[in-house]
Nucleic acid binder design. Structure first.
Length: 572
RNA sequence: GGGGACGUGGUGCAGCCUGGUUAGCAUGCCGGUCUGUCACACCGGUGGUCGCGAGUUCGAGCCUCGUCGUCCCCGCCA
């Protein structure tokens, strides 16, 4: 075998005149009749190889086709001045072939390796070919670098990386678990972890003090562009710390990662209260790359005269101001008013130009009340607070996308603090933990009769409108943990049955602790500008949770089922 | 669970609204000409169960219904 002497990026001017061997895949062939140019590609780059008719390799070279694997021996030389290619890193050089070995042939590939096109189902079916593409390779290499920098960062702060089990116990609340049947104890099941939450808390109780892990997590829920059934988290837990300490460590990590991988200084990460985020942006993950914050007009006198927009006692009135643009048509603005109705909201709009307002509520407005600039439009919406916030929050983002005011390659990172401890589950008619039931509530709020008013020491990291991770201060006493279980309707017996070991652990000296977890897939996606998580995962699943390459999930044999003591319903 | 978009030679798309003769374009692939190309060029050729099933019709890639798959969204995802 012609074994390589150099990887392609290592070829440079100092090697001109020397004999080199490269290994790689045939990327492109240009056969000019008398002379054949072949681009050979490896992980590091592309180099042009030249086959001349006089060479004994010429006849072999004629057999080459796309994606053949080759070893090429030849003399590295400078290209003639007029034949240099500035688009190629090795464009000043070429290899004059003296020997060629075909290491593997290839069928005509079903996707083009060197073009950014192709339907995703075919790309996923032939993922090993898709992964030959530059964009995917650089995404995965970026991801590798980010994980290495993460380890470097935590190691330097005396964190210990500890693995936790993938076969564990089903947890209450939250996402559906993937279930794994036990063969040895028929009729019983493991669950794959939604996160290593309980284990990392136990590690704190064990005294490890500072733990991290780059951990796989599993959630059996419906998928989206930003959700895979298995995903990776940078999981962190610390003892003898408060919220600020954790945010400092994580904030510095994110800052370090941006600096080390992209060379971007994101500055220190600012904080915002959950209630402010909802009030200003209608979202607990606000995108701060652009303005258009919501303005609350409820207490302004003039809204009493806004006709159908006049608020009732329990309603609010909010406005967003849209910068001058040529994009938003009357029809589109009317469209927002129309969709507002389906959320039990009332919306009117007007554009300010030539000193007056035009539009659905133009006649009702004066600029002494609003103070907008020429060319700006306003959308004013009235209704029940929660609906109003989430609706206008979505409209804000929708409009910003349409009028293209969201800057590219900009990263706005922030903390959202003081989340509500509980949220109402309408289906089950009970409160449940908004973060998870191990979260420390604000103790001064606990006396509150209205559970929705109790704040939690939980916090999210948000980048550009994406939830990038979340964490909390944890409960570390049995009595408080039991109290929280009770509040969310987990009975004492159930708590004991499912978490007895955990509650017991609190009785043997549990230190105050807090932690966080960052979604690696999302972080990498946003940093490389990938439109979907599938672009930063080597072997992702489709939105229906299947792997098109392996064709799984798939059936198992009768024998396998029998061993597990499982019988399928129906005739399958 | 619900809504929407898409499914046509190996690949990417057009054709569907308004049903009618050999399903078109690009690229790939095969053959030929060509000694400085770089998405080489030029000439010739090859390649299609129009996702699958049913229905309407004299006739379906096109209309209808169902079904499967991919993608996006809502629910869901502590």
């Amino acid at each position: 075998m012609l074994k390589r002497t150099h990887r392609i990026h290592e070829l440079n001017n100092s090697l001109i005149g020397k004999e080199v061997i490269v290994n790689g895949w045939v990327d492109r062939i240009r056969n000019l009749g008398g002379i054949i140019f072949v681009w050979v590609r490896d992980r590091y780059g592309i180099v042009q190889v030249l086959f001349e008719p006089e060479s004994p390799t010429y006849e072999i070279a004629k057999k080459l086709s796309a994606e053949y694997v080759v070893g090429v021996k030849g003399i590295l030389r400078e290209r003639p001045r007029e034949a240099k290619n500035a688009d190629l890193a090795s464009g000043d050089l070429e290899i004059l072939a003296t020997d060629l070995e075909i290491l593997a042939e290839s069928k005509t590939p079903p996707i083009y390796i060197n073009r950014e096109e192709g339907n995703e189902d075919i790309r996923l079916k032939y993922r090993y070919l898709d992964l030959r593409r530059k964009s995917l390779q650089s995404n995965l290499i970026f991801r590798h670098k980010l994980m290495q920098k993460t380890r470097e960062y935590f190691n330097s702060l005396d964190f210990v990386e500890i693995e936790t089990p993938y076969l564990m116990k089903s947890t209450p609340e939250g996402a559906r678990n993937f279930i794994v049947p036990s063969r040895i104890k028929k009729g019983t099941f493991y669950a794959l972890p939604q996160s290593p939450q309980i284990f990392k808390q136990l590690l704190m109780i064990a005294g490890f003090d500072r733990y991290y892990q780059i951990a796989r997590c599993f959630r059996d829920e419906d998928l989206r562009a930003d959700r895979q059934p298995e995903f990776t988290q940078i999981d962190v837990e610390m003892s003898f710390v408060d919220q600020e300490d954790v945010q400092k460590v994580i904030g510095d990590l994110v800052k370090y990662l941006f600096k080390e991988t992209l060379g971007i200084d994101i500055g220190n990460v600012p904080s915002m209260k959950y209630s402010d985020a909802m009030e200003l942006y209608g979202s607990d993950k606000p995108d701060l790359r652009f303005g258009m914050e919501m303005k609350n007009l409820t207490d302004q006198i003039f809204v009493r005269n806004l006709g159908f927009l006049k608020p009732s006692e329990e309603e609010e009135v909010k406005m967003i101001v849209v910068p001058p643009n040529e994009v938003l048509s009357r029809k589109e603005l009317d469209g927002y008013a129309e969709s507002a109705k389906s959320f039990n909201l009332r919306l009117g709009w007007a554009k300010f130009s030539d000193g007056k307002f035009t539009g659905s509520i133009g006649k009702l407005l004066t600029n002494t009340d609003l103070g907008v600039k020429a060319g700006e439009s306003v959308l004013i919406c009235t209704g029940q607070q929660n609906n109003l916030n989430s609706f206008l929050g979505k409209v804000r983002i929708d409009i910003a996308n349409k009028i293209k005011i969201i800057p590219d390659r900009t990263f706005k990172v922030l903390w959202i603090n003081e989340f509500p401890m509980f949220e109402w589950n309408e289906e089950e008619k009970r409160f449940q933990a908004q973060h998870h039931p191990f979260t420390m509530p604000y103790l001064e709020d606990l006396a509150n009769e209205d559970l929705s008013k109790i704040r939690a020491h939980s916090y999210d990291l948000v980048i550009n409108g994406w939830e990038m991770g979340s964490g909390s201060v944890r409960i570390h006493t049995r009595s408080l943990q039991e109290k929280i279980f009770k509040l969310i309707g987990i009975s004492e017996e159930e708590a004991k049955r499912r978490f007895g070991f955990f509650l017991e652990a609190f009785e043997y000296g549990a230190p105050p602790h807090a932690g966080f977890a960052i979604g690696v897939d999302r972080l990498v996606s946003i940093m490389v500008g990938a439109p979907s998580l599938r672009e930063v995962i080597a072997f992702p699943k489709t939105t229906s949770g299947t792997d098109l390459m392996m064709d799984t999930p798939s059936e198992v044999t009768e024998e396998q089922l029998k061993e597990l003591g499982i019988r399928l319903e129906g005739n399958s």
